[in-house]
Design a binder for these strands. Structure first.
Lengths: 345, 345
DNA sequence: ATGAAAGCGCTAACAC
DNA sequence: GTGTTAGCGCTTTCAT
C-alpha cells in the first residue's frame, strides 16, 4: 500500500520505444516533425503506461505556462462567483488553466497573491481589485515585467491596461432617472468608496440624474462605504439616525441592498411598500423567482468571457497589442412594487 | 515600452554579493546553515531588486509544490462558493496555494482536471464529485500515485480516503420527523441521484422517518434527479402532473427548492402557505433576512476548513496517515409558517 | 558556514 | 524524420 510510485517520464517511454526522448516529446505534442506512425505508437504507449507530462518541467523549459492568474476580492458572492465560473469556462474552452486567488478585500493579501502568481510565471493576470486598493506599484511591476493584465469590474487608473467593465454611470443614472420620473423626491444613495471606479461612477450617475431634474441632493441621504451586506446595514442605519427616511434607495451593490433590507426590517420598514429599492447586480435566482428589489443587470458572465478573450488576444498577439476598454451595457429591471407579493426564498 | 524584462534570478543575486547561489537560496528560505548577517544581507538585496523565486523551478527541483488541487462541480452556488472560500482561507493561513478547477457537473471534465492537477504535481487533492461520476478509476490512480485525497460533501465509496461530510441521513430524518409531528401526511421528497451519497442518504433519512411513524410513502410524491434549480422545477412539475399536491416538500438541496418554488409559483401555489418546504442548505443571506424555506443548516465553511486540515495532516505525516471520516452535525432551522411575511430579496 | 556538482523533467535549437 | 546538445532556475547532497 502506498508504495513509492515513481511517475513515468519521457525517458521511460523513449527507452521502451528505442527512440530519443525528443521524439517522444514532439510526438506527444503532435509536432509535425514526427511521422504519423511514430506519433501513433508513442501515444499508445503513453496511454497504456499512464504517462502524465510534468507540467512544471514543461513550463519551466518552455517559459510558457498556459495559465492565467485570476484575482478577485470575494468568491462567495453571486456576482463574483458567476464571473469566476465564466472565466473558468472560457479558459477551459481554450485549453488554458486558471489559478484563482481571493484577496478577501485585503490589499495586502492581493499583493501577495499577485507576487505568487508572477512567481508561478502565469501568462497573464485578470484582476478585480479590493475595495481598499490604492497602491498601484505592484501593477506597475506586472506591466513592466511584460505580463498581460486585464482589469475587470473594479479597475485601477493605469495606462495601457485593458479593462472590462459595465456602464456604471449610465446604469446608475437610469435607476435614479426612473425614481424621479416616478415622482420620488427623497432619494437615497448607499454608495461605494469613491476612490474606486464602481463607487465613483455609480455615485456620479446618481448625481447626474438628480441634477438633470434639479432635485437637490440631501447629504444626509448619501453614504460612502464598502460593498458588503454590513456596509449596507450600517449605511442605512446611519441615514435613519439622521432622521431621514427615504422613499427610494439606490444601492451600489446587491449585498449592500441586502444589508439595507435587514436594517429596514429591524426598523419596521417594509420593502418595497415603504421604500423602493434598486441595486446594481442581483440575486442568483431571479430567473426563477421575482425579486423585491429592482436591479441594474450586470452581465457577469460576459465580463468573465470578454476578459479571457482580451487576455488571449494579448497573449497571442503581443506585437499588435493595444489596451482596450470594453464597457458592457446594463439594463434596469423593475420588479418591486407591481409585484409586492414577491418573495425570494 | 514593454521591453523584454528578464526576471532576476538567484545567480544575479549571487554575483552581486559574491557568494554562491546556494547560499542565496538557503538564506532566502531562512535555512539555519546561513549566518544571520548573510541572511539579512541577502534578503535586503532580494527585496531591493524585487527578486521573485521561480516557483516552477523550485517545485520541480524540490518535488514539492505547496499546492493543493481543489475540484468542485460548481462555483456559482452559495454552498460551493462558501466551501471554496473557506478552503482558500485555510490554505492561505498555512502558506499553501490552491488550484481550483470546476467540473460543471461533467464527469469527463472532472477527469481532465484531475489529470492536469496531477501533472502539476499538486501535493494533494480535495474533491467533490459531479452528480454523474461513476467511474472510480481516476481516483484509484490518484491513490496509487500516493497523492493524498480528501472527498468533501459528495464522496465516492473508495477505501482509504478521508472524507468530510455532513450528517445527511440525520438531517433528512429531522426534516421529515418535524413534518410528521406537525401532522402532515402528504409529504414529498425531491431527491437527488441515489448513486451518490448525498442523494442516497438524504433519501434514506426521509424513508426512515416515514417508516418510524408508519406513514406510507407515496411513490408519486418522490423523485430522483440532479441537484440544480432545473431539477427541482421539473421534479415538482412531474409530481403535480401526477395529480398529487403535497402539503410538505423536503428538497435535497437549496437550488432544488428554488426550482420547486418557481414551479409552485407558476401553478398558483403559495409557499409557505400552501406548501411548507424544507431543504438542505440555504441562501447566502439568512443572517440578514428570514427565509420562506425551512432549512437544514450545513456548515459549509467548516467543511472547507476541516478538509484542508485533514489534507495538511496527511501531507505532513504520511507515515501515520489513516483515513478519517469527519461527519459534521447539521441543524434544522424552521422559518416558514410562523413568519409568513418573510421576503427574501 | 559556505560552495561545487548534479539533476529535477522537459523543450528549443540546431544538427544529421 | 530523428537525435544531440544545452539549458530552464532552482534545490539537493556532499565536500570543504
Amino acid at each position: 500500500m502506498n508504495k513509492k510510485f515513481r511517475p513515468i517520464k519521457l525517458d521511460d517511454l523513449a527507452k521502451q520505444l528505442k527512440v530519443s526522448k525528443v521524439t517522444i516529446s514532439k510526438a506527444l505534442r503532435g509536432h509535425p516533425d514526427i511521422s504519423p506512425e511514430t506519433t501513433e505508437k508513442v501515444k499508445q504507449l503513453a496511454d497504456k503506461l499512464g504517462y502524465m507530462p510534468n507540467i512544471l518541467a514543461r513550463n519551466l523549459s518552455s517559459r510558457k505556462s498556459n495559465t492565467i492568474g485570476l484575482v478577485v476580492p470575494k468568491i462567495a458572492h453571486i456576482f463574483f462567483s458567476t464571473v469566476i465560473e465564466a472565466v473558468y469556462d472560457k479558459a477551459f474552452e481554450n485549453n488554458y488553466e486558471i489559478v484563482l486567488t481571493v484577496s478577501q478585500e485585503h490589499a495586502e493579501r492581493e499583493r501577495k497573491h499577485i507576487q505568487s502568481l508572477l512567481s508561478m510565471r502565469v501568462d497573464g493576470l485578470i484582476v478585480s481589485v479590493t475595495q481598499e486598493t490604492k497602491d498601484l506599484s505592484i501593477y506597475e511591476r506586472v506591466i513592466q515585467q511584460g505580463v498581460p493584465l486585464v482589469f475587470i469590474d473594479r479597475v485601477l487608473p493605469i495606462k495601457g491596461v485593458s479593462t472590462v467593465t459595465v456602464d456604471d454611470r449610465g446604469g446608475a443614472f437610469s435607476a435614479v432617472d426612473y425614481a424621479i420620473k416616478k415622482g420620488y423626491k427623497k432619494i437615497a444613495h448607499l454608495g461605494g468608496y469613491h476612490h474606486i471606479n464602481i463607487g465613483r461612477l455609480r455615485y456620479e450617475g446618481f448625481i447626474e440624474a438628480m441634477n438633470k431634474y434639479r432635485i437637490p441632493v440631501n447629504p444626509n441621504l448619501v453614504t460612502e462605504g464598502g460593498f458588503s451586506e454590513e456596509d449596507g446595514y450600517n449605511g442605512f442605519m446611519k441615514i435613519f439616525k439622521k432622521g431621514s427616511v427615504p422613499e427610494y434607495v439606490f444601492a451600489v451593490t446587491y449585498p449592500v441592498a441586502l444589508g439595507m433590507y435587514a436594517a429596514a426590517l429591524e426598523l419596521g420598514l417594509k420593502i418595497p411598500q415603504d421604500i423602493e429599492v434598486t441595486c446594481f447586480g442581483k440575486n442568483s435566482f431571479d430567473r426563477y423567482i421575482p425579486s423585491v428589489f429592482n436591479f441594474i443587470n450586470q452581465p457577469a458572465k460576459d465580463i468573465g468571457t470578454e476578459a479571457v478573450k482580451l487576455m488571449l488576444d494579448q497573449i497571442n498577439n503581443p506585437k499588435e497589442f493595444e489596451a482596450k476598454q470594453i464597457v458592457l451595457k446594463t439594463q434596469l429591471v423593475i420588479k418591486g412594487l407591481e409585484n409586492n407579493k414577491s418573495f425570494i426564498p
